[in-house]
């Protein structure tokens, strides 16, 4: 089977399918010619950027869900830099960037001001990469969660500090090569640790809504944004966004890699309310983790020149992580 075939099959059979197959009211926001284009064209993201794709879908869906009454707060990072090189901006919605670690708190301030000024119909989305979420912004995020401030916080997780040149973050997976976890020594790449499971941490705060999504299933991503905007209080959305630059992958493989992350079990896609998982997106066609890893240069040290697995010990440990996710979230259940 050539690598292209599963993708083709998926485009027919999944939510990523063409809108012509679904009723008009279920079509994507992006299919609507009158969509906001919250993040409009001309920005400076890399080719194949998962974050730019994810942010466009998230914000356009949020704009439609709030009837255009939306303010976005952005942490420092790729999304901030590639959209607003002064004096240009790609944002067609009110948008603010303050600092790297304070987006959750700035968003709290925006929501508080709207409440104080009698404008609580205007809603607030805060967004950050994984560094701004799980590392430097974690304290502020946990505070915002605990207070249940009326903010949807979206993490675009590309698993490292890409804007500064691909350094390890608290969300970098085991064995991945980054500029600070080089593919050297007996255990190349990022060490195996406990990981920082941000969706689980969000659930532990008892939030009204926590969801994960990938840029491979954009209908699903939009639906989760819409669901989140139906609710008040703190909500959390964790979006898996491949990064061709940092992952040393082909720009054309961004969607495929996102899909394989889910289909391998490495990235569980689910929704949770008040700390309990309420819906899981099941794996449709389970794949071994090497199918996912093999498309990415950051795992090249695990493979031989012919593409065969050269470090079965390490790949086995990664497979065990996927298997644990599958068991924990019931990803293979119908």
């Amino acid at each position: 089977m050539s690598p292209a075939e599963p993708v083709k099959f998926y485009q027919v059979g999944s939510f990523a399918a063409g809108n012509r197959l679904v009723p008009a009211e279920l079509r994507t926001v992006q299919a609507d010619a009158a969509r906001t284009n919250s993040l409009t064209s001309g920005h400076r993201a890399c080719q194949g950027c998962g974050e730019a794709l994810g942010a466009r879908y998230v914000l356009d869906a949020a704009m439609r869900a709030t009837d255009g009454k939306l303010i976005a707060v952005n942490a420092t990072g790729c999304l901030e830099v590639f959209t607003t090189p002064y004096p240009e901006t790609s944002w067609r919605i009110p948008w603010m960037h303050s600092l790297f670690g304070n987006a959750p708190a700035v968003a709290t301030g925006v929501a508080a001001a709207l409440e104080a000024r009698g404008r609580s119909e205007v809603r607030v989305v805060a967004q950050a990469g994984d560094g701004g979420t799980v590392d430097i912004g974690f304290g502020a995020l946990s505070g915002m969660f605990e207070r249940d401030d009326d903010v949807l916080f979206v993490c675009y997780d590309n698993q490292a500090y890409m804007n500064t040149g691909v350094q390890r973050s608290g969300a970098t997976p085991p064995a991945a090569r980054t500029a600070t976890t080089e593919a050297l020594g007996p255990e190349p790449g990022n060490p195996f640790g406990q990981g920082k499971n941000m969706p689980a941490l969000a659930m532990a705060h008892g939030l009204g809504y926590v969801a994960t999504a990938t840029v491979a299933e954009l209908h699903d991503l939009e639906a989760k944004v819409v669901r989140a905007m139906e609710l008040r209080g703190a909500r959390y959305l964790h979006v898996f966004v491949p990064c061709p630059l940092g992952w040393a992958s082909e720009p054309a493989d961004t969607i495929r890699i996102a899909r394989l992350a889910k289909e391998s079990g490495l990235f569980p896609v689910f929704e949770a309310e008040r700390g309990e998982v309420t819906r899981v997106s099941p794996i449709r066609h389970r794949v071994p983790v090497e199918d996912y890893l093999g498309l990415q240069g950051r795992y090249r040290h695990l493979f031989g020149a012919d593409g065969s697995v050269a470090r079965p010990d390490i790949v086995g440990r990664i497979q065990a992580l996927a298997d644990a996710n599958i068991a924990r979230y019931g990803l293979l259940e119908p």
């Binding site: 303050s98 304070n102 709290t108 301030g109």
Partner: peptide, 23 residues
Amino acid sequence: QFINVESEFAAMSVAIGASATGA
């Protein structure tokens, strides 16, 4: 709105967001 934040960094950041929203 009186907000008990989790750090001074958040205190100033909340003030930043609120002030930028006209409060």
